[in-house]
């Protein structure tokens, strides 16, 4: 990537960083997606969020996206993301930001706890880019769901058409219920 010092690019980066911080992104996402220095991002984070960013590694496993409830959230987000990236020519990170906003909007409208964080959503898009996760069509309803890349497309049935035995039994408020 050309690292030309342009004030316009910098202002765009700052704007993106602010949107991401407001959505609750971790500092690693900002470091990856903008060319702003760590020190400046840290200062920006404190200014926007009013607190220090949380520390520690990012979640690195694809397993989370494949468990029943998270999978439904992840699939909705990824479908929106695909929709946007196919109909509009946006920079990758802007697609993530817009898709995430649309996803949380839908969660608020349905009064469901948004399980997917922007950091997780961003991470998932990277997993998909690297072929570690993909969208597979459910053979029953025809919807696209997040799966492992080697899922058998002919037999695949999504978690909403064929919920697993323990699904929807959790006691957490705002969780998905079957009945």
């Amino acid at each position: 990537m050309a690292t030309q010092k342009s004030i316009l690019n910098e202002s765009r980066d700052i704007e993106r960083a602010i949107s991401l911080i407001k959505l609750g992104a971790r500092l690693q996402v900002l470091e990856y997606e903008t060319s702003l220095s760590y020190e400046r991002l840290l200062r920006l984070y404190k200014e926007v969020a009013g607190k220090s960013p949380s520390k520690g590694q990012l979640p690195f496993s694809t397993d989370w996206f494949l468990t029943w409830q998270p999978n439904i959230h992840a699939s909705l987000f990824l479908n929106i993301h695909e929709y946007l990236s196919k109909t509009s020519e946006l920079e990758e990170i802007d697609t993530v930001i817009k898709a995430f906003r649309l996803y949380t909007e839908q969660m608020t409208a349905s009064a469901i706890e948004p399980l997917l964080s922007v950091t997780r959503a961003w991470r998932m898009v990277k997993f998909v880019d690297n072929g570690m996760l993909t969208l597979t069509k459910c053979s029953c309803c025809g919807g696209s769901f997040v799966t492992e890349p080697y899922e058998n497309a002919r037999q695949f049935v999504c978690g909403l058409c064929e919920p697993p035995a323990r699904a929807g039994k959790g006691s957490a408020a705002g969780g998905l219920r079957l009945h």
């Binding site: 439904i72 349905s110 009064a111 058409c161 919920p163 929807g168 998905l176 219920r177 079957l178």
Partner: peptide, 11 residues
């Protein structure tokens, strides 16, 4: 299988 309104709407 699923008859919860919120869940079916999400689907």
């Amino acid at each position: 299988k699923v008859d919860n309104t919120t869940t079916t709407q999400l689907h």
